[in-house]
């Protein structure tokens, strides 16, 4: 039923064309399509090196129906700053919105400096981080946004390891520290929420930061048909809270109707498989649960509506 309602609207968007070479069930492809669907055609988009760039721009084929530029891995925000400066100086900034895009590595690790510069200088750009929680384009290695306990090529599980030993970097808070007018998280599991946030972000002048939960079925080793289910579970467990900050104030946080244990989210994913095969996994699952509980508390995800 819902599908019927959704598809005609989605079909109206051809700004991110099909025919690209993403894996089936790829959250990044879906997220990029949703972002452009919400943004409309009067946009210039930049991309960092990464899966999205590679699967969408194999010369001479391009999935991008809006003007699009890719330069390098770490400079999407700086390229967007230059695009914005050029639009500003030629008086076109009123008609064109600038969207900078990068994966979690291109955002929170190697691209963090350029992003910080862009946010601090106040460029009128929406920066979108497609968070698939690892360096996927190079074959699944850990990034600063890889969550606790996840197995990747450079945070492997083994006799002496339960996967990634570090907590996921709190990137939205880093963005917030730049005192920018809008910071939000979104998820491919909630397309209308994502749409609303992109639209709101683009209506605000100045730098905006959005981090979108974007599954990678290949790197997370889950069935491609599970993308949406797992994206929703990430929210319902509290592991990936959906919220918005405007002018530094938390203005919305998606409430959890009934809290799910993190195990429901972890079990279907191969990247967490070791947690259920090793004895030490029990402790790691408990630590992940504690993370979810911290989020629920911090963002008031279970609080009753007044």
């Amino acid at each position: 039923m819902l599908e019927k309602k959704v598809s005609p609207r989605l079909e109206m968007s051809h700004l991110f064309a099909s025919g690209h070479s993403a894996c089936s069930g790829c959250g990044e492809a879906l997220a990029a399509r949703l972002v452009l669907w919400a943004a409309g055609p009067d946009v210039i988009a930049t991309s960092a090196t990464g899966c999205l760039e590679v699967f969408s721009s194999n010369y001479p084929n391009s999935a991008w129906e809006v003007p699009w530029i890719h330069s390098l891995f770490e400079n999407s925000a700086a390229i967007a700053s230059g695009v914005e400066a050029a639009l500003r100086v030629t008086g076109k900034l009123d008609q064109v919105r600038v969207i900078a895009q990068a994966g979690d590595g291109g955002t929170a690790d190697i691209g963090l400096q350029a992003l910080s510069g862009m946010l601090e200088r106040g460029h009128d750009v929406l920066f979108v981080c497609y968070d698939n929680e690892a360096y996927m384009n190079t074959g699944v290695q850990r990034s600063g946004l890889t969550p606790l306990g996840a197995h990747t090529g450079t945070s492997p599980s083994g006799q002496t390891s339960s996967g990634n030993p570090n907590l996921k970097k709190d990137m939205p808070q880093i963005a917030l520290a730049h005192r920018i007018p809008y910071v939000a998280t979104a998820s491919v599991g909630y397309p209308f929420d994502l749409e609303k946030k992109v639209k709101k972000a683009l209506s605000i002048r100045g730098p905006k930061y959005m981090q979108i939960f974007s599954n990678c079925p290949l790197g997370w080793r889950h069935d491609p048909s599970e993308t949406i289910t797992l994206a929703k579970l990430a929210v319902e467990t509290g592991l990936f809270p959906l919220y918005e900050y405007e002018d530094g104030q938390l203005v919305s946080a998606r409430r959890i109707a009934s809290k799910k244990p993190v195990e429901d989210y972890l079990r279907p994913q191969g990247r967490y498989g070791h947690l259920f095969a090793q004895e030490s996994g029990v402790e790691m699952v408990a630590r992940i649960q504690a993370q979810a509980d911290v989020n629920i508390e911090r963002y008031g995800l279970m609080a009753k509506k007044e």
Binding site: L72, A78, I79, G82, V83, A85
Partner: peptide
Amino acid sequence: SVVLGASAT
């Protein structure tokens, strides 16, 4: 990178 982006624009 900024001048790259601006030149491309």
